[in-house]
């Protein structure tokens, strides 16, 4: 990698996706997140624990607007904000004027008028955060838009990979499963590609369509799962997004599991020190075998822990705590 300059602030006002970020932006987020990780000396597995509460963002307010069900991402943002002493307001969508037919834009303009310091949005429509960003100056953090991007997930994944592999460049990463409907896959392939990783995709043919290899340099589409796993340093599994399929794209969860579930036998094709990741919630026995998810190879718990650290870093960087 060429020498990079070190940034002290992000080049972007919003976090809409990974694609518009530079390598320097990403490095800055990861370096900032590292401050919020603590590393017990005894553990050799890169386990981390977030730091205790800080006063950095006291008096600032974060609004969470989740137009789609979420447990871990919403809780992770809430925890991140609270650890920095931010006030958190959850837009309760079932009780709000959204139910009364108010348009998305009007709702967000109303929220913006209350002058929060940042707005976290998750929405089933791809591009919704981009649309809203054109109409407000409040920093928007995309917590997942349709099947487009989920940038905080890719950043926490990058932090987790770096914890274990000590680098992001020159890695072979297999991303497996329902790529078509995965915003996690899109964000991850943009991020890893920016660092020069080789990314192999595989899954049921309609879920890994032609053209994915054009999304970023270093991406290849493999016809078979085994091919993608060969020599991988990192194996990222994805959840089967049945709720996003308009038509059944495979016969049954059982049929899917038979050919695409990450079993110990399949994982044996990866490097012996390969780590296994999953953005959750995972379907035990369908997209990942229980013994793999529970094994030493799985870094799923660290992903969750790093989620808080990465989101703390982003809140710090985007809410103007920096001059």
């Amino acid at each position: 990698m060429a020498a990079r300059k070190t940034l002290t602030r992000l080049s972007q006002q919003h976090l809409l996706g990974i694609e518009p970020l530079s390598v320097e932006d990403i490095e800055l987020v990861l370096a900032t997140a590292e401050k919020y990780q603590t590393r017990p000396e005894a553990s050799g597995r890169g386990e981390t624990r977030p730091v205790p509460r800080l006063d950095l963002l006291r008096g600032k307010t974060l609004v969470l607007a989740f137009y789609e069900p979420s447990t871990r991402t919403r809780l992770s943002f809430e925890m991140a904000a609270q650890r920095l002493s931010m006030d958190v307001v959850n837009l309760a969508l079932e009780a709000s004027s959204v139910q009364k037919g108010e348009s998305l834009l009007d709702t967000v303009k109303t929220l913006a008028a209350m002058r929060p310091d940042a707005l976290v949005i998750r929405h089933p429509g791809s591009g919704v955060p981009h649309f809203l960003a054109r109409h407000t100056t409040v920093p928007i953090l995309n917590a997942g838009d349709g099947v487009h991007e989920h940038p905080t997930q890719a950043l926490l994944d990058a932090l987790t990979i770096r914890d274990h592999k000590r680098r992001l460049d020159n890695l072979k990463v297999a991303i497996l499963g329902d790529i078509l409907h995965s915003r996690v896959a899109r964000s991850n392939l943009h991020l890893l590609s920016k660092f020069g990783a080789r990314i192999a995709l595989a899954g049921p043919p309609p879920l890994v369509p032609k053209g994915l290899e054009k999304l970023a340099p270093g991406v290849t589409v493999c016809r078979r799962l085994e091919e993608a796993l060969e020599g991988a340093d990192v194996v990222m599994m994805l959840r089967v997004q049945l709720e996003r399929q308009r038509e059944p794209l495979f016969a049954s969860p059982r049929e899917y599991a038979r050919h695409y579930c990450l079993t110990p036998e399949r994982l044996a094709r990866a490097r012996p020190d390969a780590i296994v990741m999953h953005p959750g919630p995972f379907l035990r026995g369908i997209d990942i075998a229980g013994e793999v998810a529970d094994s030493e190879r799985s870094v799923i718990p660290q992903q969750v822990a790093n989620g808080v650290a990465v989101r703390m870093a982003l809140l710090e960087l985007l809410t103007g705590a920096h001059p």
């Binding site: 694609e19 791809s126 591009g127 838009d145 349709g146 099947v147 487009h148 991007e149 078509l180 915003r183 899109r186 369509p209 053209g211 994915l212 054009k214 999304l215 308009r246």
Partner: peptide, 18 residues
């Protein structure tokens, strides 16, 4: 075409649009 909102191709894949 059901559910589609733009041309199916590289850009729809990139933008996450059907």
């Amino acid at each position: 075409s059901e559910g589609g909102v733009m041309h199916e191709g590289e850009w729809s894949l990139r933008l996450g649009l059907r």
